[in-house]
Amino acid sequence: MMVILGVSTSACGEEPPDHYEAGQICEGLFSGPLEKTIESVLGAKSFDSNGKGGMQRAVDGLKKAYESGHNWAPGGTLCEISPQGIGTKSDSRIYFDMYMPRDLEDKYSSKKRYYLMGKRAAASPLGASIYYECVSPQFEGSKERPMRIYGSFVRAQASRENRPDYVDENMQIAHAASLAVAKKLQCENNGGLPEKPVLTPFVPPKS
């Protein structure tokens, strides 16, 4: 009688790692020099999740928002960033929505730092946001009615003390995510976003 010996394999494949490095989270969005920025801002070197699938979720959400014809609509979360072993209260988040035209009429805040990128870019110790417009073949009619995109990085208060010197680092994170989404959506001129963030503060006019 012939006996066939084989090696059994799991139907589920290899188990996922129990942690991820900064360059692996958010689908590798911060791989390279920004790895140190993420570690500095969030006070961690390892994370519980890599945020797989978030880019497509954010892009699909923005397309659906544009097609709704509304002045405002939610887009989607690109990723949640969870420092390992700290708990969900320390999750930070990067998300995208379609903003209302009147949002750019809001008064400038003395608690934020502003930058000359997109339509408006602002950061504080707790996060950063960028407003920009996108003309793209992926948005039918966008030459006449550009897609209005709001990208935001929100830091969990529990992840690190809210020191003012984190402001520029927060903007670097928001810029990297917003630029990646602009490229994915084929926005003309990347929606007015530079390849590298312009971190020279913009002094807004007095109201």
Score class of each variant (00 low, 15 high):
16 P>G: 08
48 D>Q: 11
186 Q>K: 10
63 K>I: 03
10 S>I: 03
156 A>N: 04
17 P>Q: 11
167 V>Y: 00
22 A>W: 00
166 Y>F: 00
187 C>Y: 02
33 P>F: 10
89 K>M: 01
197 P>G: 10
127 G>P: 07
110 S>I: 05
62 L>R: 01
171 M>F: 03
50 N>S: 04
159 S>N: 15
178 S>N: 07
135 V>Y: 04
118 G>F: 05
165 D>M: 04
206 K>E: 11
95 Y>C: 06
179 L>Q: 02
155 R>K: 04
85 G>D: 03
52 K>D: 03
183 K>G: 12
72 W>R: 13
50 N>G: 01
47 F>D: 09
163 R>G: 12
205 P>L: 06
139 F>S: 01
56 Q>W: 00
168 D>L: 03
120 R>S: 07
156 A>L: 03
152 S>M: 11
198 V>E: 13
106 D>P: 04
116 L>Q: 01
144 E>A: 12
44 A>W: 09
16 P>F: 04
195 E>D: 15
93 R>A: 11
86 I>W: 10
172 Q>W: 03
43 G>A: 03
88 T>N: 03
97 D>A: 06
50 N>F: 00
115 Y>T: 06
15 E>M: 13
158 A>Q: 15
84 Q>E: 11
147 M>A: 15
36 K>Q: 06
146 P>K: 12
125 P>W: 14
97 D>Q: 05
72 W>K: 12
60 D>P: 00
156 A>M: 05
27 E>G: 02
92 S>L: 11
177 A>C: 14
160 R>Q: 15
1 M>S: 07
160 R>S: 15
35 E>M: 12
142 S>D: 14
14 E>D: 08
33 P>C: 01
81 I>D: 09
84 Q>W: 14
34 L>P: 04
202 F>N: 09
54 G>Q: 09
190 N>Q: 05
42 L>T: 01
48 D>P: 09
203 V>L: 12
5 L>D: 13
18 D>K: 14
27 E>H: 05
193 L>R: 12
193 L>G: 12
85 G>I: 07
15 E>R: 15
81 I>A: 05
107 K>I: 03
16 P>A: 06
60 D>V: 02
184 K>Y: 13
144 E>S: 13
165 D>Y: 03
138 Q>F: 08
2 M>N: 12
78 L>T: 00
185 L>K: 14
79 C>R: 08
10 S>N: 13
206 K>H: 11
159 S>E: 12
125 P>C: 13
127 G>H: 04
66 Y>A: 06
24 Q>E: 15
112 K>P: 07
25 I>K: 13
189 N>R: 14
161 E>G: 11
48 D>N: 09
122 A>D: 06
82 S>Y: 09
140 E>W: 05
46 S>N: 01
182 A>R: 08
91 D>I: 08
41 V>H: 09
178 S>L: 12
120 R>H: 04
108 Y>C: 09
151 G>N: 04
108 Y>Q: 08
81 I>C: 08
46 S>W: 02
141 G>P: 13
104 L>F: 00
144 E>R: 13
131 Y>P: 06
207 S>Q: 10
193 L>P: 12
149 I>S: 03
164 P>K: 01
38 I>K: 07
14 E>S: 12
182 A>I: 07
94 I>V: 15
83 P>A: 02
39 E>I: 05
170 N>P: 07
148 R>H: 08
192 G>P: 10
57 R>Q: 01
